[in-house]
Design a protein around this nucleic acid. Structure first.
Lengths: 154, 154
DNA sequence: TGCTAAGTGTTATGGTATAACATATCAACC
DNA sequence: GGTTGATATGTTATACCATAACACTTAGCA
């Protein structure tokens, strides 16, 4: 597992900018429509490394002049997660921008309970996959999340 | 991963009975108070291998003469999960009785989207643990869940 | 231009979870 | 046995998370 960027100090403006550029490229390539609301939602998620609740995203969307009713946020989040540009952290019922390209992958989240930052790591979920397959279970989607303390908060 | 009992036909009455006996022993040993409400909640969870929502548990608790307000269910479920006698399936916001002794362990859930049964497997979460530790993250609790189709539903 | 599909606005409602405070019960000790 | 402090339960109220259903608009294309 590489050093997760969420727990290291870094040039966040740059971090945001490149993620957004990658997202645009990904959408162009896959003919997905990154509309203003969706783009705004992505920018909101990208602005922090912690996971944001849907209603928190909604507030910020409304503040930015977009829809102010729950479906506005849920639709945007749903587009982003379907496109692989964001993920839902099930343990928090909250959403984070994807830290990796637009590649389809099984995310692994490290959620710090102190600073609330969420790092996304890539791991070979091979153990899970093959073990499940061995017992005859066919995996569609998997969720791997760990809560605890990040290096900076210990 | 051993063949998960939830996906095999088995003597469920026996399955329930031994789980309950183990839970009682576990509580005695750890001086935990398995009060009537808590015991009732555990029996409710044990009655099925699918995950039950908190309000579903609440209904059954009320029907059995226990509290009928949400905190009654959440408190019982919280006791059971803290004691390791039940787990929350985060992907479903629902609860299942623990299939293994009272041992503290990292559960791995296989959730069938067709029959709704949830199997709990034990797996060495060693990959996750050591990888997280290598990047300096200290895990308190981890969630590993896969949704898909069980052998019988494919 | 007119059609169709996709996206958005809006209202309403349903499902999940906890805060806060009152009351009751338990366990241990005097 | 009665007192006390901790644990558990009852109760009210509310907050947070999520989606159904339908109307309207816009984009993309024949």
């Amino acid at each position: 597992m590489p050093d997760p960027v969420a727990f290291s100090s870094h040039d966040h403006a740059q971090c945001e900018k490149t993620a957004l550029a990658k997202a645009e490229a990904h959408c162009r390539e896959h003919k997905l429509r990154l509309t203003p609301v969706r783009r705004a939602a992505l920018e909101i998620l990208l602005s922090e490394h912690r996971a944001l609740g849907a209603y928190e995203v909604l507030e910020k969307l409304a503040a930015a002049g977009h829809g102010s009713h729950p479906p506005a946020a849920y639709r945007a989040l749903s587009f982003l997660t379907d496109a692989g540009l964001a993920h839902k952290v099930e343990a928090l019922n909250a959403y984070v921008a994807c830290s990796h390209s637009g590649n389809s992958h099984t995310p692994v989240f490290l959620v710090c309970t102190s600073c609330n930052n969420v790092a996304e790591a890539e791991m070979n979920s091979h153990g899970l996959d093959s073990a499940a397959h061995a017992s005859g279970f066919e995996i569609k989607r998997s969720v791997i999340e760990a809560t605890g303390l990040c290096p900076g908060c210990q």
